[in-house]
Nucleic acid binder design. Structure first.
Lengths: 346, 346
DNA sequence: ATTTAGCACTCGGAGAGACAGAGTGCTAGC
DNA sequence: GCTAGCACTCTGTCTCTCCGAGTGCTAAAT
């Protein structure tokens, strides 16, 4: 694979990404940094096609990169751009204010900004919420026989759930129950909460239990709910304007976003680009992927450990050189902000 | 407007709604309850066209109802169907469980069920949250200098917000502050919370205020947040499969759903059908409506007073006779469930 | 006074054929 | 090993024609 062929591949990708039209040998010959004739380029392109890096929609059309072509491009030819300083500042300003206080807020800001900038869908999952620890449990009466359970974890997640009891509790009972829960659950990690553990709680409580079991049940469901990885998707609508993606596929994805979870969780470190072809091969059990799409995934970290993933879903024909630096910057930014918060805590 | 013409109009609407094709005189003549020849029908159709109730896409095509045609149909000709008993039971079962405990849950269940059944988008707004009353204020420490404010209203709404302080509070300060807030805010209606009121709080507190102002500020923002009418939209994706709606319009709507708020709030009682033509005329300041769409809106009530609105957005070519009974049933159901909850409370 | 049968007319959509243009592969020469 | 030139291929577009569905009108029938 000689250098000129790589340059031609890069030129085809760059050109195709911006115009969306198959690119011919003449177009490439006209580029300033290519100093050979169109005929030479035609020969090289024929070789690149043999190698499975380019393809022709039909005999008399120009060439289009295959997903393997994109892969090689990203690996070998892509200019490793860094965001200009003023752009970084613009992005930083998006994270000012309240949003930066919680991981949820950060994820929301980051995905919506990414979606906006890249005109793609942006996705995020938080990893391993099961290792966070209960920092507060509270039961709050909100109406006749109606109670809200409030659960807060060390990671700053807050969830609540409404429960209806058979009988009403008086203040004393409520205080006793709250104290009881706090005593037994404070500092316990979510992953340690099991039905067995709740059974123990029930026996420990004894007499009260007849009336309070819906609350304990609700608490358990709430903890399950908090343990679930949360998928955030933003800007799916942007995909509707790409002609190379089928509307049908996008709608199906909207209806069933969870299918991408296993694919997202697949990446281990660094930025990883995956095409729908890869996804189909590596996740054959997955009934569905958006055809002609690509997914770029990075990790954000908390104190050095992967704490979640941030990614972009777009058409395969995507300006990777532009998009990847943004994704890198955002993952870095989130990592810093959530680790900083942790520092404050200790 | 003689009876036969109405029957023909109804036939055109029914036929067009199911097939999506312009309907010709022969098709109608073949219907069992029409006993005149196609020529007669042609004459009548020409009259209906003169009246602006039907139109022809082009000279040699069949007729299609205009929005005025639909209007007359809904008003005069539509069979007033009632849902069969077993269907009602199926819907009722959707409202079992936790969802029925909060108004939010009900709205979520109802809109997603409506969207599913009608294959349209379902929307809801709650009305007048500003008249609900604060039933609980709590400040909960969740990290170093990091606090969560929790606000619960009599209507059962729960919201929280994270705040960062300059300094940390000790337990005593926290208790004092919480007690202070409860004393001054418990039972106060959201609409009475004004910046002035918070100014008074600030002066009443005196010394503490330097450190606590972010919390008071956060509380104010939280109350504003709770007062906002909340728009719930479900199933917008269903609209993408209607060819008569422009994808462009739908995407624009997804990006800016709030535009329908004033239109929703327009209806006063009963079921109301509004077409995009109407909306354009009556809300000229509104920059955008989905072309060729219709919106059907009903109210749900709490103890007799309108407590919110539930609606369907779909193409103008919609099976109104099927959809409207569902909407009626859901508004009735929600009214009963939230009023029942209220009964429990008192 | 309506209703019906018959007929000429209109228009859109599908299909066939022609044509221009872009791009290729190949060959022969530099 | 590169380039110029040329024949070839394929698509998209344009035009033309034809078919069929549906209408409006007129004259006859009820």
């Amino acid at each position: 694979m000689d250098d000129r062929k790589l340059r031609i591949l890069a030129a085809v990708v760059d050109e195709y990404v911006t115009t969306g039209e198959p690119v011919g040998s003449k177009t490439i010959a006209a580029l300033p940094d290519i100093n050979v004739s169109s005929a030479t380029i035609r020969n090289d392109m024929a070789v690149l096609e043999q190698l499975g890096l380019l393809e022709q929609p039909h005999t008399s059309a120009g060439r289009v990169p295959t997903f393997q072509g994109y892969k090689l491009y990203i690996e070998k030819c892509m200019p490793g751009a860094v965001l200009p300083e003023d752009e970084k500042q613009r992005l930083d300003s998006m994270f000012a204010g309240d949003a930066a206080l919680t991981e949820d807020g950060l994820i929301q800001s980051a995905t919506s900004a990414l979606a906006e900038i890249t005109k793609c869908a942006a996705v995020a999952v938080n990893a391993m919420p099961q290792f966070s620890v209960i920092s507060k449990v509270e039961v709050i009466p909100t109406g006749k026989r109606l109670y809200v359970i409030l659960l807060i974890t060390s990671a700053g997640n807050i969830k609540n759930k409404a429960c209806r009891l058979e009988f009403d509790l008086n203040d004393e009972q409520l205080q006793f129950f709250t104290a009881f829960l706090t005593e037994h659950l404070h500092g316990v990690s979510l992953s340690d909460l099991s039905p067995e553990m709740f059974d123990q709680l029930v026996t420990a409580m004894g007499a009260y239990m007849a009336t309070l079991s819906p609350l304990v049940q609700g608490l358990y469901e709430l903890s399950r709910d908090m343990m679930r990885q949360e998928l955030t998707v933003n800007g799916t609508r942007n995909l509707l304007t790409c002609e190379e993606l089928k509307t049908q596929d996008i709608v199906e994805f909207m209806e069933n976003q969870d299918v991408i979870m296993p694919i997202l969780n697949d990446t281990f470190s660094g930025i990883h680009v995956m095409f729908s072809e890869d996804a189909k091969r590596e996740h054959p059990q997955q009934t569905f992927v958006i055809g002609n799409s690509s997914m770029i995934v990075g990790q954000y970290r908390k104190d050095g450990k992967t704490a979640g993933r941030l990614g972009i879903i777009g058409p395969m024909r995507l300006n990777y050189a532009k998009v990847i630096p943004y994704l890198e910057y955002f993952t870095e930014k989130i990592s810093n902000l959530i680790s900083e918060k942790e520092d404050d805590d200790t």
